[in-house]
Design a protein around this nucleic acid. Structure first.
Length: 636
RNA sequence: GCCCAUGUAGCUCAGUCGGUAGAGCGCUUCCUUGGUAAGGAAGAGGUUCACCAGUUCGAUUCUGGUCAUGGGCUCCA
């Protein structure tokens, strides 16, 4: 008699030893069809496994995130089988599940993207066959015998302990695998091979070069199509392409990894920065600025020379060695030490939009997302230990306020003390407790990354989510117990003694450049009015209205609206179309009627046209919309 | 940094099995003076095909190197 306990604590008893599938079917046939795997006493297993003794069971159904991993792992097997059918000489290595799908590294001659469809066709055959996955446990010797032709698998097997070597067979295909797997290949309803790339065995360049085949899989075709659509959508929004088309920024061989911002890009940049300054001043920040090139001695003192040297640009000036700053904090330390502080002066919130340079690997560069030169919307907060909670809370609330303006939601992650760290247990406890208290007061759920903090203190990372559902770590709040020590920062306490301040490093945009790129993709180039590089375009219908168009432009600029005139000798239709595809929020057409009556006709991006507006009728709501930085489209 | 691919007009790209280059968009001019998502015509534009060598009578095309861009290189059966 086997007793099975379900998650709701209900109990079912079985005369004979049941498999997971038997238990699922005892609930209902329909439920069993949607089951992918099970968790027995907190361990993932195949449904085909017999349950030998009393156990707590939890089923993974097709709607479960973990189930998707199981499916993709099985899909990797199916892909591997297909490759072996087509390329019998190929040697399989490893095939794990990754964030958006799976891959398999295979030792085989290079193939091209064109070959993928051939492999996909083979995969479909295997799926149609609805082959079951069968698990078999073997000894190490048996395993080595089975895979004797495959040195990679043998290498893996030799690293395993004798006990847990399991094989999975589906059809004629056998692979070394921990499992679990889906019941049969027919459950893979949507599968697509994405790309091929090179990879090294064990990520070691001195070892064999393998072909890595990427794919993704879903339980239904619709989900797959949604995913493919998302990728298409992301491609269309690629900030590198949009930046060129909208004339915002560019990259050049003369400065790899460093963006050139064009006039329109700078208009947006300044709009972002104006907003930043306004919110920060209101939140009690002052703004500071420190030099870009600083003497080596400073970097030795801060610890960067020892820990960050390979990413720093250096130069020699008057026989002295200097480094271009990769971070703003050491300069901020010098700034702090220019005067003395009383406890009454704290917290001191010193912002700095600092230009930093980091020598990233050339292969890692990517548009505005990964650059070598960027601006951090940095701030250093110096405070007493009992101010940790309120200051961190303040940063979280300020972040929320700022992200909200862009329609970005976010989640929080707390990283705690790593193995290698400085400071005393008491300091870490106080710091971490301060962060946790702030998070609790803030009230939003957060993820804990145990041991993921910096060596000098715990931190909270803020991950924003864009319009396509992609997440980006932008904001971070890091407690630092090291730098105040290294630089011997002090303030005078109520007790007339010297005390060590605690310091926060924090950014909200993170890298201005990267955040800019994220916004371009988030909005797909269709920016809210307050951010739009060109807020209004004036279109004279005929060329003799050019002068009047210019005077309208002047008036609009005087009202603080970024404006252009399209003077080309083209039809109105054409000018409108181009303004529309460049997402200019306000399109003003100027004809005889407007000139005579001194009115404006305004077309918004929704295609609606409002005629006969006076200049004030137009500028008043537009100015308000810009000033309040309203996310939604303006309605006139 | 490493692997693979790519680098041709401002943009997107075609082409030359080695004989000094083309399209569309954009730009200029002209015709049209047009009222809400692409009117028509002509023309200019490449220090000659990222850069540097080599092979060759001759290289943008072949070879080697350099630089840049893109994808991947962390997610361990």
């Amino acid at each position: 008699m086997i007793t099975i306990t379900f998650p709701d604590n209900s109990i079912k008893q079985f005369e004979d030893i049941p498999t997971g599938m038997d238990v699922a079917k005892s609930i209902s046939e329909g439920f069993a069809r949607n089951c992918v795997a099970m968790k027995i006493n907190d361990q993932f297993q195949d449904l085909s496994r017999p349950i030998q003794s009393d156990a707590a069971i939890e089923f993974l159904t097709v709607n479960d995130d973990n189930a998707l991993e199981v499916l993709r792992h099985s899909a990797a097997h199916v892909m591997a089988e297909a490759v072996l059918n087509l390329y019998p000489e190929a040697k399989l290595t490893i095939g794990p599940v990754v964030e958006d799908g799976f891959y398999y590294d295979i030792d085989m001659p290079p193939i091209s993207e064109d070959d993928l469809s051939k492999i996909e066709a083979e995969i479909q055959k295997i799926i149609k066959a609805k082959n079951t996955f069968e698990r078999k446990v073997v000894s190490k010797d048996e395993a080595l015998e089975i895979f004797r032709d495959n040195p990679f698998k043998c290498e893996l097997i030799n690293e395993l302990s004798d006990q847990d070597i399991s094989l999975y067979r589906n059809g004629a295909f056998i692979d070394l695998c921990r499992g679990p797997h889906i019941p049969h290949t027919g459950m893979i309803k949507g599968i697509k091979l994405m790309k091929i790339s090179g990879a090294y065995w064990r990520a070691d360049p001195s070892r064999e070069q393998l072909q890595r085949l990427y794919g993704t899989a879903f339980f239904d075709k619709k989900k797959l199509n949604q995913y493919l659509h998302l990728i298409e959508e992301a491609k269309k929004r690629d900030h590198r392409k949009l930046g060129t088309r909208l004339d915002l920024y560019s990259f050049h061989d003369e400065a790899p990894g460093m963006a050139f911002f064009h006039a329109k890009g700078m208009d947006m940049w300044n709009a972002l920065l104006d907003y930043w300054r306004q919110t920060h001043r209101a939140a009690g920040y002052v703004e500071t600025k420190t030099p870009v090139i600083l003497n080596r001695k400073l970097w030795e003192k801060s610890g960067h020379w020892d820990n960050y040297r390979e990413n720093m640009y250096t130069c020699i000036i008057d026989d002295e060695e200097y480094a271009i700053k990769p971070m703003n904090c050491p300069g901020g330390m010098i700034l702090f030490k220019t005067r003395s502080y009383s406890y009454r002066d704290l917290p001191l919130r010193a912002g700095e939009v600092g230009l930093v340079h980091r020598h990233e690997l050339s292969g890692a560069l990517s548009g505005l997302f990964r650059v070598r030169s960027f601006h951090q919307d940095d701030a250093h907060i110096f405070m007493t230990p009992d101010q940790i909670e309120s200051e961190v809370l303040g940063v979280l609330r300020l972040s929320e306020q700022i992200y909200q303006k862009f329609g970005l939601t976010f989640h929080l992650e707390l990283s705690t003390r790593p193995e290698k760290s400085i400071g005393t247990d008491a300091q870490w406890e106080q710091a971490t407790a301060g962060l946790e208290k702030a998070l609790k007061t803030y009230g939003q759920d957060y993820i804990i990354n145990e041991g993921d903090g910096a060596f000098y203190g715990p931190k909270i990372d803020i991950h924003i989510k864009d319009a396509l559902g992609r997440t980006w770590q932008c904001g971070t709040v890091q407690l630092d117990m090291a730098l105040p020590e290294r630089f011997d920062l002090t303030y005078k306490g109520q007790d007339n003694d010297k005390h060590r301040p605690i310091m926060i490093h924090r950014v909200i945009y993170g890298s201005m450049e990267r955040f800019f790129g994220i916004l371009v993709e988030h909005f797909a180039g269709k920016f809210p009015l307050w951010l739009a590089p060109v807020q209004a375009v004036v279109l004279p219908i005929t060329q003799d209205l050019a002068d009047h168009a210019d005077s309208v432009k002047k008036d609009l600029e005087a009202a603080g609206i970024r404006c252009e005139v399209d003077h080309r000798n083209e039809t109105l239709k054409k000018k409108i179309r181009e303004a529309q595809i460049n997402y200019v929020p306000l399109i003003l057409t100027i004809g005889e009627k407007e000139k005579e009556t001194g009115t404006l006709s305004v077309r918004t991006l929704d295609g609606k046209v409002k005629m006969g507006l006076s200049m004030a009728d137009f500028t008043t709501p537009v100015q308000r919309h810009i000033k309040e930085r309203i996310l939604d489209d303006i309605v006139l």
